[in-house]
């Protein structure tokens, strides 16, 4: 185990200045972030948001799918409880994000922890979980890449707001396909086989079942938790060792 962790430290994935590492890992996301942010801006414009209000939302909420869902259900004046429920449902996976980031944040200061959590989104969290690096390098990566993505997110929201009635055809440009491919490639790097077969099969079956049967976004949490439960009860030490490596 000692040799393994020593190897892991010397072979950190962050082999260049952090901003260059962020560009190398997140540059591919730019084509998917920009049209998505512009769509949020267009929607916000349609619901009577001023430019500054749209920008404030993208900075403070910084969670695209929930912004789209909330804007689609937006009334004037907004129904605050319904809004909270929609955002909680779409973003329930962020409970798991916060839990999985715990080990790399503990004992590193409240402000650092808060900003790391605030700047963690699906893409940079997934990369940080999968990258081979020290806890500080991982949390530093999340803050740097989160800031990078937030700048893109805010600029595209503002541009979308100005475009107003023009709706970008994200389908023709394959924005959905880009997001799917990105997450699929990450899944392939996380695949270790063995005991994972049972937990991933469970997650897949439950996620698809709930997705098919229940409206909303509960399938993400349902599939994730049931699969992880199987891993918790069926896993063995070999599994843990390979996860750590």
């Amino acid at each position: 185990m000692t040799t393994r962790s020593a190897d892991a430290q010397s072979a950190s994935d962050v082999d260049r200045p952090m901003w260059r590492y962020v560009l190398a890992r997140c540059g591919i996301l730019v084509p998917s972030v920009l049209p998505f942010g512009m769509a949020v801006g267009v929607l916000a414009y349609g619901k009577g948001f001023s430019l500054i209000e749209a920008v404030i939302m993208s900075v403070m909420v910084f969670a695209g799918a929930s912004q789209v869902a909330a804007l689609e259900a937006w009334t004037s004046p907004p129904a605050l409880l319904a809004l909270a429920a929609i955002v909680a449902a779409v973003n329930s996976r962020y409970f798991l994000t916060g839990a999985t980031l715990g080990p790399i944040l503990s004992g590193r200061g409240k402000m650092r922890g808060f900003f790391t959590l605030a700047l963690a989104v699906d893409a940079n969290w997934a990369i940080a979980m999968q990258m081979r690096a020290s806890p500080d390098e991982r949390s530093g990566f999340i803050r740097a890449s989160g800031l990078f993505l937030m700048v893109l997110w805010v600029i595209s929201t503002a541009v979308g707001h100005r475009l107003g009635t023009v709706v970008t055809d994200t389908h023709a440009f394959g924005v959905d396909l880009l997001v799917i491919s990105f997450f699929s490639a990450l899944l392939a790097t996380m695949w270790r086989g063995g005991p994972q077969i049972a937990s991933w099969t469970t997650a897949l079956a439950v996620a698809l079942g709930v997705w098919w049967a229940v409206d909303g976004y509960w399938y993400i949490v349902a599939g994730a938790i049931s699969g992880a439960f199987v891993a918790a009860f069926l896993g063995d030490d070999d599994q843990e060792a390979s996860d750590a490596g």
């Binding site: 699906d122 997450f183 899944l187 938790i225 699969g227």
Partner: peptide, 12 residues
């Protein structure tokens, strides 16, 4: 917790 990243992304 170790299994969660994979199962979240798979379910997403």
């Amino acid at each position: 917790l170790n299994a969660l990243p994979g199962t979240v992304i798979l379910s997403l």
